[in-house]
């Protein structure tokens, strides 16, 4: 059992609605530095909305988010990225017209500073910068074992590999907090095992804090340190995998027993 004390991000009393539809109601939880947190819940529970709120894509009507001790209410996705929050998406959101290499290179953009002129004439600094970042990206490519598809346009890749490239793109930003939206959806057992291994390795080797949404309970129980359960936009439970597994409310929500 790993112990985590320092809070990286805390979500307090978040409520989000679209017109009359309430997506999230009064949700609070914390993400500790260095842990792997799983957010689970039935379809429509508000899991993706929660991630969208954390990285500034949706703006909650109420509540405060504190990231590394800094409070914020309204924030653009761009600012979240700059502060060190990276993510992947439920439906793969790669840049279809670009190669694997270029897709992962886009993850480095916040660290690339050369201006239009030096980039246009590929002058010394621009060239050096490009090559430096290429070296980092190649490390990620090695780590994810996707060397062979380096130059392939991502649109031609099978789904499982696309998910892996997307993880690579998020890793390229060297984030402090990595949000993964159903990283194993639609994968077979072997691919799931690979992906679980990558997630644990990222957490282990780079110390990256990870919050992930996943439906496969086996995977969730295996890889996460803590689990938050959402249902109908409310938080049902929050605890270690074992605590959550034995929580009566959670069992009811999943099995639909008694009401």
């Amino acid at each position: 059992m790993r112990e985590f004390n320092e809070t990286l991000l805390s979500v307090e009393n978040i409520s989000l609605s679209f017109g009359a539809v309430k997506a999230l109601t009064n949700i609070s939880f914390e993400i500790k530095k260095g842990e792997v947190l799983a957010i689970i819940g039935p379809n429509g529970a508000g899991k993706t909305s929660m991630l969208n709120v954390i990285n500034g894509f949706y703006h909650p009507q109420e509540g405060v988010i504190t990231f590394r001790g800094e409070k914020r209410r309204q924030m653009k996705p761009y600012d979240a990225a700059r502060q060190g929050i990276a993510r992947t998406f439920q439906n793969v959101a790669l840049f279809k017209g670009m190669s694997t290499l270029d897709n992962i290179m886009t993850g480095r953009n916040l660290k690339m500073k050369s201006n239009i002129l030096s980039a246009a004439f590929y002058l010394g600094p621009a060239k050096r910068e490009e090559i430096e970042h290429r070296a980092v990206v190649e490390e990620i490519i090695d780590f994810l074992e996707i060397q062979a598809i380096r130059k392939t346009p991502v649109g031609r890749l099978p789904y499982g590999l696309q998910k892996r490239v997307e993880l690579g793109r998020a890793l390229a930003a060297e984030p402090d907090l990595l949000l993964l939206d159903e990283p194993m959806a639609g994968m077979n057992l072997e691919e799931k095992q690979d992906m679980s291994r990558f997630i644990l390795d990222v957490n282990d080797q780079f110390g990256t804090t990870i919050a992930l949404i996943e439906h496969d309970m086996g995977v969730v129980m295996d890889i996460s340190d803590r689990v938050v359960v959402l249902d109908y936009g409310r938080k049902l439970a929050d605890g270690t995998p074992d605590e959550v597994k034995n929580n009566q409310e959670v069992i009811e929500a999943y099995l639909g027993v008694g009401h």
């Binding site: 790669l94 670009m98 270029d102």
Partner: peptide, 29 residues
């Protein structure tokens, strides 16, 4: 110069916006 630009991080930003603008913003363009 244009060929260089489209191969640089600036060009990758353009293509990212083209292919999926929301994702491009979320990863920091």
């Amino acid at each position: 110069a244009t060929k260089n630009l489209v191969r640089s991080h600036i060009g990758r930003g353009w293509m990212a916006i083209r292919d999926m603008d929301i994702a491009a913003e979320i990863i920091g363009f």
